[in-house]
Design a protein around this nucleic acid. Structure first.
Lengths: 150, 150
DNA sequence: TATTGTTATACTCTATAACTATA
DNA sequence: TATAGTTATAGAGTATAACAATA
């Protein structure tokens, strides 16, 4: 159901995160020594879950060749490995290595390290906000975590 | 006050918007015919308010030369004009033209045109979420709208 | 024939360094 | 001397086109 309040909430959220998210991503990237593009890829993966390269291209609406170059860079650093798809031999699944999973988790920590925008809310409001956002996230699993397609 | 719930809310929001915001920005960009970088600049401006070029570089943590190139591109399309600062003759203020303000508003509309992530919430929840986000935005004016520095 | 991924190449975005003008 | 902005140039990020392998 799309309401006026919902659209206002969306616009406010967009204005809050449009610049804040890339800035924090950049900070984490600098601190960890992995480029923002590679970090974004690690975020899209989950430990133990293989993701077809095609899925990344669809998700980002980018060209497949870009996914190839990102995957190459991640594999060079041993953060990720290409695995064969069990039935379709055209498909390659990207899987986090142990190091990759560690870097990913470390990045999430750095991301929440500096003072957060939500700190201005009361404790009760922060819980309220978390619950609302979780409900939204739960309704769009592909955005928050990749489907277990392996 | 930073609580566990606040950090969880932040991480959830980050996962929701990390890819969604750039994607919608890209959609709006394609539909309107203005590159994502230029659109982001228009978003940072407000009709009738001059913003020093330096402020954009600080906000994005980018090099001043990038702001120069973006401003050149926007000026070429008559979306923006450089104005002198009233007292400091080194500073140039960027101001939206009438066309620039129109494009900016149109982009905001396109941005909310497709089904929104918040549509899964009830009407009451959407209002709640809007109010919480507005409280956050109100506490960080520089993020949501540039200070009236002209 | 259509799809996944790769290679080679070109374009766009963003940074670095050297510079001018003003403070 | 320090800061705002510009220019020229270089690098990173991302796309396009042609291709190989598989479906």
């Amino acid at each position: 159901m799309s309401t006026k309040a919902g659209r206002e909430a969306w616009r406010t959220a967009f204005e809050l995160f449009r610049d804040e998210a890339p800035r924090r991503l950049g900070d984490a990237s600098a601190e960890i020594g992995v480029s923002p593009g590679l970090l974004k890829t690690l975020f899209h993966l989950s430990p133990g879950v293989g993701v077809p390269m095609r899925e990344l291209a669809d998700h980002w609406r980018c060209d497949a060749s870009y996914v190839t170059s990102v995957t190459d860079a991640l594999e060079e650093r041993d953060l990720v490995r290409r695995h064969p798809h069990p039935t379709d031999r055209r498909v390659k699944m990207i899987v986090l290595t142990k190091e990759g999973a560690a870097v990913r988790e470390r990045a999430f920590e750095v991301l929440s390290g500096s003072p957060l925008p939500f700190d201005v809310l009361t404790a009760a409001e922060q819980r309220q906000l978390r619950d609302l956002l979780r409900k939204v996230a739960a309704a769009r699993p592909e955005a928050a975590r990749p489907a277990a397609s392996a």
